[in-house]
Simulated assay, not measured.
Amino acid sequence: MIPLDLPEPSPEAQAHSARLRELIAAEIRANRGAIAFSRYMELALYAPGFGYYSAGATKFGAAGDFVTAPELGGLFAACIAEATAPVLRRFKGEGCFLELGGGSGAFAAAVLPALAARNALPAGYWILEPSADLRERQRERLQAELDAGIFERVRWLDRLPDDDWNGVLFANEVLDALPTTRFVMSGGEVMEQSVCLHGEAFAFCERPADMLVSAAVRHVERSLGRAFADGYTSELLPQLPYWLDAVCGALAQGLVLFVDYGYPRREFYLAEREQGTLLCHYRHRVHADPFVLPGLQDITASVDFTAVAEAGQHAGLELAGYSSQAAFLLNNGLQQHVEAGPADAVGAHRRALEAKRLILPSEMGERFQVMGLARGVDCEDQFAFGDQSHRL
C-alpha cells in the first residue's frame, strides 16, 4: 500500500519493487521467519540488480529523490579542494584521492578542476562505486566535462586498495547509508529489531540482541552515564570500527573526510529521539516507513559522530577536527569563492543562493557535520574556525 502523500510509481517501478520484496520475503522465510533490520536495509539498498543503489533509477538532484551538496553547484567542491590541496601537495604529485560512492559524478567533475587550479591534482582519482549503473553515468559525465588529461587520472575501483597509499579519502553522505542495527529496550534488556512477515507485509519484530549488539548498546549507555528507558528505540553501527579499519587500513598517510547528517552521541540519543533517527527519501518526500516501496526509496539513519571518532582511534587515526558543514566551508574559503563567482547579476544571485543552502541552519549548514581523521599529517588548520571536537 502506497501512502497517499507519496507519488505513484510507474507500473514498471512497482513491478521492480515487487520482485525485490519477494526476494527479501524469501530470505525471511528461509531464516525461520525473521532477519535483522540491518540485513533488510542492506538488501533494500544494495541487492544486486534490485537494491536502491544497485538499480538504474535517478536518485540525485531535482529529478531524483534528494539533493546532495555537490548537486547544488561548484561551491562545495571548491571548499573541499581548498581543504585537501595542502595534503595532496605534500606528496608532490604522488598522492591519490579516493571518493567513496561517486553519486552522479557532480563532485568529481567540480573538485578535479579546482584541485588542478591549486596545483594539487592527485596522481589518481579513485571512485569506489558498487553500482554498475552509477559507474556508467559517472564515466559518461566525467568524460564529457573534464579535460582529457584530467579524466585519464580517474579510475573506478572494484574493491579497496590492497597496497599502501597516501592522499585523501572523501565520503559525502556515505555513513548514513550503512546498513544500521535497530535496538529497543525491554525490561532492561537489549532487544534487536528484526523484520518478519505479517501476512504478506513486512513488519518489525523483536529478538534478544546478540553479544556484539548488546555490548555496543551497553557501551553507549556507559558513555552517556545513564541507561536507556524501556521502549527506547534507536540505531547504532556495531560494525563501524571494523568497516572504518577496512576502509582506511591501507592509507599510510593522509586525511579522511566524512560529511553527513548526524550528531555527537549525547545529542543523538536524546530522550526525545525515543524512536530513533531512521528516515526514508522518495521523490523529495521524507517519511519514516522503511517497508514502503523497497528498492525505490532511500533508507538512512543519522550518524553518531562520537562513534566515528572512536572507530577512527581504533583504526589508528587521529581526530583532525569536527564541525558543522557551515563552519567547515567558511573556514575553507566559501566567502572568497562566492565573491570570485560570476559577475553577471543572474549568476551572482544563483551563487549566493547556493551558498545559503550550504550554510544556513535551516538548510544544510548545521544539520550536516564534517569530521576529519588524519594519519601522519597535520590538518588542524582545516578546522581552525568552528571546531567542536569538545562536543564529542
Rank of each mutant, 00 (worst) to 15 (best):
I2V: 07
P3G: 02
P3M: 11
L4V: 12
D5Y: 14
P11M: 12
R19D: 07
A26F: 00
E27Y: 01
R29L: 11
A36I: 01
M41P: 02
P48Q: 05
F50G: 01
Y53T: 00
K59L: 11
F66V: 15
A78P: 10
V87W: 04
V111S: 05
A114I: 11
G124L: 10
Y125M: 03
E129I: 03
A132P: 06
E136L: 08
A144T: 05
D147N: 11
A148C: 08
E152H: 13
V154E: 04
L160P: 03
P161H: 06
D163Q: 14
D164H: 06
D164T: 03
N166H: 01
G167V: 03
V168D: 07
F170E: 03
L178R: 05
T181E: 05
G187A: 03
M191V: 11
M191W: 02
H198R: 15
E206A: 06
E206T: 10
R207F: 14
V213I: 05
S214N: 09
D245K: 15
C248L: 13
C248M: 11
A252H: 08
L255T: 08
F258C: 09
V259W: 00
Y261P: 00
F268L: 15
Y269L: 11
T277V: 08
Y282I: 07
R285Q: 13
H287R: 07
L293R: 03
P294Y: 15
G295L: 03
Q297G: 01
V308R: 09
A309R: 01
E310C: 06
Q313D: 13
Y322I: 11
Q325I: 08
A326W: 02
A327D: 12
L330R: 14
L334S: 09
Q335S: 10
Q336S: 14
G347Y: 04
H349T: 15
R351N: 08
K356R: 15
K356N: 11
L358S: 07
M364N: 09
E366K: 06
Q369S: 09
G372W: 00
E380W: 15
F383T: 15
A384F: 00
F385P: 10
G386E: 11
G386W: 08
D387A: 06
